[in-house]
């Protein structure tokens, strides 16, 4: 077990180097010299040279690459170009509102989707199953933007049930602010989740061991909740755990629309002000979190499936 984890941990190194390489190529090679943009038209060559030095852009390319790699381990991303703030500081502040929104939304939508998909799997092929399947696909076909615009307009602006925008720190003060975006998140994720869970569960229902369970005299409900679900949990765990990194990234659009000062909002602000280091930091941070959680999902996998041998 420990050996497996260590091997899997060692594999993180080439992947992290690869991620750093992509980000380095994008921002340090393709993007070109940012000093002209930063200093404006009237900058002297001397000023530009100084800034380059300050940003570490005069170093040889390999050294610049090492800087990117280092930031992936130390989380020291330098300062923002627009606000001049320490980026790691900004990220720490932004994480709180983002997680306040995404964690409850994620937990509720996952549990709800699982319950719905077990229900439709039980009634597979019947009217209710077809209806739910159609709703999932139809729901997924509406743009996320349309949901947000409509819900915000109708429930917050027209009916006044929720706050239109903003955020307050501390529980329970933030609840009225995150309630509507959380609902929208749930509506947005139920479609794809139910669709995936249902497929996985149905794949299992047609296996031979289910026939054995029936021959034993177990009830359909018992078979579904014990035998089928336990096997279906294996792919479901992977699917769910792999989504967790996106919680850290925050709900980009939701935070933007509802003016929640989370990581998503920070990303979009940086995008509008061409604040490269912030985008770079977000890309690295989200990749690192993704890599860590895919490791966790692999380890959980070995608990869920006794067939996986730990070498």
């Amino acid at each position: 077990m420990t050996r497996y984890i260590i091997r899997r941990l060692l594999y993180l190194i080439p992947v992290l180097l690869g991620v750093s390489l992509i980000i380095f190529v994008l921002f340090n090679v393709v993007a070109g010299d940012p000093t002209a943009v930063l200093l404006g038209k009237n900058a002297t060559p001397r000023q530009m040279q100084e800034l380059r030095e300050q940003l570490g852009l005069n170093k040889p390319l390999f050294a610049q690459y090492l800087d990117v790699v280092r930031s992936a381990f130390t989380f020291d991303f330098g300062r923002s170009w627009s606000s001049k703030q320490e980026i790691s500081q900004m990220l720490r502040q932004g994480a709180y509102p983002s997680l306040c929104l995404t964690i409850p939304a994620f937990v509720i939508s996952t549990v709800l989707s699982l319950v719905i998909s077990l229900g439709v799997a039980f009634y597979r092929g019947k009217g209710i199953d077809l209806f739910v399947r159609f709703c999932c696909i139809a729901g997924m076909s509406v743009s996320a933007l349309a949901y947000i615009l409509f819900f915000q307009y109708f429930f917050a602006f027209k009916l006044g049930w929720f706050e239109i925008s903003g955020f307050e720190f501390g529980f329970p003060d933030f609840v009225p602010f995150i309630a509507l975006p959380a609902i929208i998140w749930i509506v947005l994720s139920i479609g794809p989740d139910v669709r995936f869970f249902r497929t996985v569960i149905l794949d299992e229902i047609y296996q031979d061991y289910v026939r054995t369970a029936r021959a034993k005299g177990l009830s359909e409900m018992h078979i579904l909740l014990k035998h089928v679900l336990r096997n279906a949990m294996i792919p479901i765990i992977t699917y769910v755990v792999i989504q967790i990194p996106f919680l850290i990234l925050g709900a980009l659009l939701l935070e933007n629309f509802f003016s929640i000062p989370g990581l998503g909002g920070i990303t979009l602000n940086a995008l509008n002000s061409s604040d490269f280091p912030v985008i770079k930091a977000m890309a690295i941070l989200s990749s690192v979190v993704y890599i860590v959680f895919s490791l966790i999902s692999d380890i959980l996998y070995t608990f869920a499936d006794p067939r996986v041998k730990l070498k």
Binding site: Y209, R211, K216, A304, D305
Partner: peptide, 16 residues
């Protein structure tokens, strides 16, 4: 009435 099947490989639930 009970029954045994041709494929013992797939007839048992792999996770129990």
């Amino acid at each position: 009435i009970s029954m045994i099947f041709q494929e013992p490989m797939t007839s048992l639930n792999p996770v129990f």
